[in-house]
Simulated assay, not measured.
Amino acid sequence: MNTTEGATSVAAGGGPARAAASRRRVGPYTLITAVDDPRTKVPVPERRYIARSADGQHTVLLSLPHPGGDPQRFRAEAEGSRYLLGPCATPATALGAPGEPAWYAHPYLPVLPLPTVLAVQGGPLPERTVRALGVALAETLAVLHGQGLTFAGVSPAAVLLAADGPRLSCFGAVRAAAPDGTPRSGLPGLEGGSLPPEQASGGRPRPLGDVYALGATLAYAATGHTTPERDELPAAFRAVISRCLARDPGARPQLAELVDALAADAAPAPESRSASLLAPGWLPGRVIAALTHQSAAVLAAEIPVEATPNPAPHPN
């Protein structure tokens, strides 16, 4: 892997670097820009970039483990993500080959991490946005749990927002960061407020841990903090988010209860409860404008096109 640095962030309005010759290569891809804005100061479980294939035909979201992390665990979790189902799942569709540094990728669409969305918005998100976010993520987690899987890594940075709804990224961040039985508090990239107490102390991830982490993520969307005081939470979902954040897993709601509480006034839809909540207007105008800016900046990025005799592997 060429370690020449050249990618900057377009997440919060900056433009991609123009010095094409200094761009970094990862596997068959050239990095265009970082997805995450370090100014938000929110830990990110993995390093994420927008990248393009050497032939210039395929743009992807590409992830790398943190320096010093366990690349084998990272690779294993990325491989496992290929089987994820659910409307907000982002399974890996291309992975680094054996013998090269660990990375994985999936097709690009304009997205902003939740912390960047709050920065763009200038504060917490409107009630409509938080409700739609919660229902869509809860429905996806329910599908994963039905597959016998635990996401183990829901956090503000793991949630990417697109115009048509949220996406869950950073699959298995907790497990990729440390083996079961190893305390995980304070590990690089993991947001402490989103870690269920039983996982922070080294316990094996369980489905009700995902409920805790989802509650912390919704609390962040509504207040800017993953561990707010109860009175800081909007009255509309104060009770249900507080239950999600219960230290006792048995006191947390089931995902179906969470969906019912957040989608109580939503019109029924044949696809899912989130379908009507994710109708146009679910995201604030400033966020839509930032997504549009990112898309335009990525399209305008100057990437040298290389003729390759063998097509580069790319997400379907």
Score class of each variant (00 low, 15 high):
C88S: 14
A105V: 09
V259M: 05
S276W: 03
A300I: 01
R238F: 05
A102W: 11
Q294F: 01
L125Q: 02
T93M: 15
P270M: 05
S295K: 12
I32W: 11
E79F: 04
F74G: 06
C170Y: 00
D55C: 10
A177E: 01
A89N: 04
L84Y: 13
G224P: 01
D37C: 00
P207T: 10
T59M: 06
A12F: 02
T226N: 00
P101N: 05
G15M: 13
L161N: 03
G146R: 09
E271M: 09
G165M: 10
P91E: 04
A136I: 06
N310A: 12
V111K: 01
A266F: 10
G56H: 08
L283Q: 07
G281L: 12
A158I: 00
L255D: 05
P270F: 07
D164M: 07
Q199A: 14
Y212F: 15
D248N: 15
P98S: 06
G56N: 09
P110I: 01
G285F: 05
R167F: 12
L283C: 03
V44Y: 01
S169F: 04
F74T: 06
E229W: 11
G146A: 11
E79C: 01
A21C: 11
P315H: 12
D180E: 13
A7L: 08
E77M: 15
P207Q: 09
P115A: 00
F171L: 10
P304C: 05
A173G: 07
H58E: 14
R184K: 07
A78H: 06
G181I: 08
R247H: 15
T33N: 14
E191L: 03
G250Q: 12
G27F: 09
A222E: 05
T116L: 02
R243I: 00
D36A: 11
L144S: 14
